[in-house]
Amino acid sequence: MTMRAYPGISPDHLDVDVSADVEALYTDGITARKGAFTPEWADRLREDIDKAFAEALTRPDGAVGRGPNRYYIEIHPEQLRGFVELVDHPWVRSLCTAVLGPDYRIVELGFDVPLEGAVNQPWHRDFPIPEETRRERRLTSLAFNVTGVDTEEDMGPFEIAPGTQWDDSPEFEHGMFPPKSHYGRYEERAVRKYPQRGDLSCRTALTIHRGTRNESAKSRPVLVLGVDGPEADNGDRHDTAVTRAFWDSLPERVREHLDCPVVDALVPVTQKHTIEGLVMGDV
């Protein structure tokens, strides 16, 4: 196990060896597990996303804009038929434990949908650098992504600038948006990702990234699973909940990491995870 693993975590405590993935997160800021699920599993995911997306668009604040023709929607775990398979996947469990420690918390479940006509987003990170990361170069949260489609070149693929998770400057607007004078650095490093149905990726949301222009007539929905370590507070921006019946149906090792209220009835999520600036895009 790499020395960057969470203190006290031994490979013997993990379901699978993720030492190379931990190293990749600390160097590139992103790693992936090809074929973690079957294409059929991803197709069911796409069905659940499409259903939740259609419902969210019918009510105020059901979806938040992430730029022209690009939306983010947060959902409750039981809206996703494959929720347990996702969070209980050996690679997910092992990577969360190795990076964040045994007390990691699942705090976010949502999805991004770039539609036809979505434009280049500004280069950004999803939240300001936490003090622990700035001071100790230690990651305190992770974001897992699962595509609902086979990504093609013209569908506005995700673009990331490896190694930029440590970039820090008072010039960053809101601590998240580097000025355009920094863009050359990101464009030189930029790598576009083309995940296929069933692929699973993990990144630190601090690595500078953006969604690119969708020139196709297709949408490119991507599921987002957010996980916090003990020090992180990203859960404060999310409102997921579960019903008692769903909670009782979960394996104990899933319940112990699920940080959300148990309620009698679900209320549709009102989106509050806005990211300033993305509504403008790069027109």
Results as ranks from 00 to 15, higher is better:
Pro7Glu: 13
Gly8Cys: 04
Pro11Ile: 08
His13Asp: 12
Asp17Asn: 14
Ser19Ala: 15
Ser19Arg: 13
Ile30Thr: 14
Ala32Ile: 04
Gly35Trp: 02
Ala36Leu: 04
Phe37Ile: 10
Phe37Asp: 15
Trp41Pro: 12
Ala42Ile: 01
Asp43Gln: 15
Leu45Val: 03
Arg46Ala: 11
Leu57Ile: 05
Gly62Arg: 09
Ala63Ile: 09
Val64Pro: 00
Arg66Tyr: 02
Gly67Pro: 02
Tyr71Phe: 11
Glu78Leu: 03
Leu80Asp: 00
Gly82Trp: 04
Phe83Thr: 00
Val84Ser: 05
Glu85His: 03
Ser94Asp: 08
Ser94Ile: 06
Leu95Ala: 04
Val99Asp: 02
Leu100Ala: 07
Arg105Asp: 10
Arg105Gln: 12
Gly110Ser: 03
Val119Asn: 08
Trp123Phe: 05
Arg125Val: 02
Asp126Gly: 02
Asp126Ala: 05
Ile129Lys: 14
Arg134Ile: 06
Glu136Cys: 05
Arg138Gln: 10
Ala143Lys: 13
Pro162Gly: 05
Trp166Ala: 10
His174Leu: 15
Met176Arg: 10
His182Cys: 08
Gly184Ala: 12
Val191Gln: 13
Pro195Val: 05
Arg197Lys: 15
Ser201Ile: 00
Leu206Ala: 13
Thr207Asp: 15
Arg210Lys: 04
Arg213Ile: 08
Asn214Phe: 12
Ala217Lys: 13
Arg220Trp: 10
Pro221Asn: 13
Val222Glu: 02
Leu223Ala: 01
Leu223Asn: 00
Pro230Ala: 14
Asp239Pro: 06
Thr240Asn: 12
Ala241Tyr: 09
Phe246Gly: 00
Pro251Ser: 06
Glu256Arg: 10
Pro261His: 09
Pro261Glu: 07
Val262Asp: 05
Ala265His: 06
Lys272Gly: 11
His273Pro: 00
Gly281Pro: 03
Val283Phe: 09
Val283Glu: 12
